[in-house]
Simulated assay, not measured.
Amino acid sequence: MYSLQFTAESSSNGIVERDFTVGDVPGVLWSPASGADRAPLVLMGHGGGAHKRHPSMPGRAHRLVTGCGFHVAVIDAPGHGDRPRTAHDEQEIAELRRAQAAGEPVGPIVVRYNARLAELAVPEYQATLDALQALPEIGAEGPVGYVGIGLGTGIGVPLVAVEPRITAAVFVSTYPDVLVDKAKQITVPIEFHLQWDDELIPREAGLALFDAFASKEKTLHANAGKHLELPRFEADSAVRFFARHLGQAATSAA
Rank of each mutant, 00 (worst) to 15 (best):
A235Q: 09
D177Q: 13
I201M: 03
F6N: 09
P176M: 10
P58E: 02
T7H: 03
R60H: 10
A94F: 04
L120A: 15
P32C: 13
E92H: 10
Q248M: 11
H193V: 07
G48K: 00
L117S: 08
L220Y: 09
R85Y: 05
L209G: 04
L41Y: 04
D177A: 11
L209W: 04
H71W: 05
P123D: 14
V106G: 09
F241A: 09
E204C: 05
A168Q: 03
R83S: 08
G148A: 05
E191I: 01
A101D: 15
F6C: 10
E95D: 14
V162F: 00
F171A: 10
K182T: 04
S10M: 04
V147R: 01
A33S: 15
E104C: 03
T128N: 02
E204Q: 12
P78F: 09
P32T: 12
V144F: 02
D197L: 00
K184F: 07
V110L: 15
D89G: 09
V188I: 15
D82W: 02
E90V: 13
A212Y: 04
V110S: 06
P202V: 09
P231V: 05
A140M: 06
G14K: 07
A168K: 03
H245N: 12
H71F: 11
A208Y: 03
R165K: 13
P143E: 05
T66C: 06
D89W: 01
I186A: 11
I190W: 04
S215Y: 06
P231N: 13
G206I: 05
K226C: 02
N223Q: 11
L228N: 14
M44E: 08
N223G: 01
D89A: 07
G23P: 11
V170P: 00
L4H: 05
G67S: 10
S252M: 08
I149T: 13
P84I: 12
A131R: 02
C68E: 02
V160N: 04
K216M: 05
K182Q: 15
G247A: 10
K182E: 15
R83H: 08
E229S: 06
G142A: 06
G14Q: 10
L220W: 02
S56V: 07
R232Y: 03
M44N: 07
V144P: 03
L179F: 07
G156V: 10
E104V: 07
